[in-house]
Amino acid sequence: MTRYVMVADLRRCVGCQTCTAACKHANATPPGVMWRKVVDIEVGSYPDVQRVFVPTGCQHCDDPPCVSVCPSTASAKRADGFVTIDYDICIGCGYCMTACPYEARYKVDEAAWAYGDKAMRHEAMRFDERKVGVAQKCTFCVDTVDAGLAQGLTPGVDPDATPACVNSCISRAMTFGDLDDPDSNVSKLLRENRHFRMHEDAGTGPGFYYLWDREELPL
């Protein structure tokens, strides 16, 4: 089996939002829509304050609430972990947006461009009318991954089979790969580091892991 997941190393992320920009460029998402974003949390009291940058987006959950509530079956889960949306079936009811505990889903009612009335070249090239009036979210760049797999490439290792946010990360904080492969990059990271998933108690089984410390290995 294959289970693609994302791993974000919170020790490495500097909050530069390059992944956000790369995602917006790769997917030409309209203003206000950020499939990949980095939230900024400060904890502590002055002068002992810690700042944490947390990349987030669709968690491609094991048990995605967006899929179970969807009345049209537009939201679905693939066997390899991707949670997908069929833009041709979705009725745009917005129910999945309220079901997602990660604020990962968006809906826009009309086409909009980053700079006023005129679309930038990449926006014009990648504009998809089917996404207007329906739910949209991070795809884990499923088209790129599928195309890469068809060429015999390894997602998470070969850039041509890897999500744009991972390719763009300046500090290599983000890693993508197959959790079910014990030798994959993500499996190795999760073995060697202490990690958590956000809103674990929600029971959705998110496919997005956060590293926060080295694993204490036996001497």
């Binding site: 919170l10 020790r11 947390v54 604020e103 956060y210 926060w212």
Partner: peptide
Amino acid sequence: AAQTQGFAIPRTPIR
């Protein structure tokens, strides 16, 4: 009265 779950981290990273 319909605020979202928001974001949370159970641990902060050790740097």
